[in-house]
Simulated assay, not measured.
Amino acid sequence: MAFPITRLRRLRSTEVSRNMIRETQLTKNDLIMPLFVRPGKGVQNPINSMPGNYQLSVDLLVEKCKELYNKGVQSVLLFGIPEHKDEHGLVACEENGIVQQATRAIKKELPELFLIADVCNCEYTTHGHCGTVIDGDVDNDSTLITLGKQSVSLAQAGIDMIAPSDMMDGRVGFIRKALDDHHFANMPIMAYSAKYASAFYGPFRDAAESAPQFGNRATYQMDPANSNEAIREVEQDIIEGADMVMVKPALSYLDVIQRVKTEFNMPLCAYNVSGEFSMVKAAAERGWVDEERITMEVLTSIKRAGADVIISYHTQDVIEKL
């Protein structure tokens, strides 16, 4: 029926009726908070390009996790900044690596908190690339060996989920086999399946101290212009055993999120990355936007596009409102 019989504003007239017909619901179950851990004790280094976020030593990280958990956060994603780096990122595979230490400490105090470990080498290599560099470029197959060792070491430390973010071909299958061979057949893998070579990662590279020392990551991360390629990447990760897939970044790739969800109907994560977060914070500090409203609108749009869960630095700001 056409106007005036049909008046769509009728159901917008009260808050109760608006809530009744709301199509997309954002809940605390949908959000994962990223955290950065570094060596030392009593260390809280502010990340200037990401207001409200810090590099934390293990002791303060545990306290931060308690604070988040008490607010309703149920899962965190851990990134490590090691004391020493090497050419291959092997420091990430050590039994007493920084994320391994953090995992054991958090699990001792908060066994119910779901811990996800980012698996990559960029934070652990002297050159800042995501794997072993041979002849000026990251060598795919030798990098897989390090990723497998890192994943097994994290599983042994007590992590709940592995999240490989390196974008090497075949890494999900390689990690799956490594975990299975070490009796971790039930360890889930959340693959960064469609991870783009994005300019939105700038603040994160400050946080994780992982900026590449030469070149860029365009030979392994995806071209932002490509959507069909993302479907191929996701499909390959599913074939290799990924339990959940991811699109990263989120806001400039809502179309990709929707395509992935429609085509595969797999559990889907979207990463609301550092640049997306910091732009909102910078505009809010200048009084240009209403931070609370715009943050909720951003997160809701990602959920509406098809994401089941969202990794976001906004999590600690919005969790109590949910």
Rank of each mutant, 00 (worst) to 15 (best):
F3S: 14
I5G: 10
R10E: 08
R10F: 14
R10Q: 14
V16Y: 15
S17V: 12
R18C: 12
R22G: 14
L26W: 05
T27P: 04
T27Q: 06
D30N: 15
D30T: 01
L35N: 05
L35G: 00
F36A: 04
G40P: 01
P46D: 02
I47Y: 04
I47K: 06
N48G: 14
N53C: 14
Y54E: 07
Q55L: 11
S57K: 07
L61I: 05
E63Q: 15
K64I: 07
K64D: 06
N70V: 11
K71P: 11
G72F: 07
Q74D: 12
L77F: 10
I81N: 01
P82W: 04
P82G: 05
K85L: 06
D86E: 11
E87M: 15
E87W: 11
L90I: 09
A92V: 06
A92W: 05
E94C: 04
E94H: 15
E95F: 13
G97A: 15
Q101W: 01
A102M: 12
T103Q: 02
R104L: 10
R104C: 01
A105V: 03
I106R: 00
E109Q: 14
E112G: 06
L113E: 02
L115T: 04
I116N: 02
I116E: 02
A117E: 05
N121E: 08
N121H: 12
C122I: 03
C122N: 06
Y124H: 01
T126F: 04
H129Q: 05
G131I: 06
I134D: 03
V138P: 00
D139Y: 05
T143W: 02
L144P: 00
S151Y: 05
A155H: 09
I159D: 00
D160A: 09
D160E: 11
M161G: 02
I162G: 01
I162F: 03
A163T: 10
S165C: 13
M167L: 15
M168T: 06
R171N: 13
G173P: 00
R176W: 09
L179T: 07
H183F: 14
N186F: 07
P188S: 04
M190C: 13
A197W: 00
A197Q: 04
S198P: 04
A199I: 05
F200T: 10
D206F: 03
D206R: 06
S210I: 06
A211F: 15
P212H: 09
G215R: 01
G215V: 04
T219V: 13
Q221H: 07
A225R: 15
E229V: 10
A230N: 07
E233P: 09
D237H: 12
E240Y: 12
G241M: 05
G241R: 06
M244N: 00
S252Y: 10
Y253D: 12
L254P: 03
V260R: 00
T262P: 03
E263R: 14
F264S: 08
F264Q: 07
M266E: 10
L268F: 06
C269V: 13
Y271S: 08
Y271P: 01
Y271M: 09
S274L: 08
G275T: 05
E276V: 08
F277N: 00
M279W: 03
A284F: 10
R286E: 15
D290Q: 13
E291D: 06
R293Y: 15
M296I: 12
M296A: 08
E297R: 04
L299D: 01
K303I: 09
V309P: 00
I311Q: 01
S312Q: 09
H314W: 09
T315L: 10
Q316D: 12
D317S: 11
V318N: 02
I319W: 11
L322V: 10
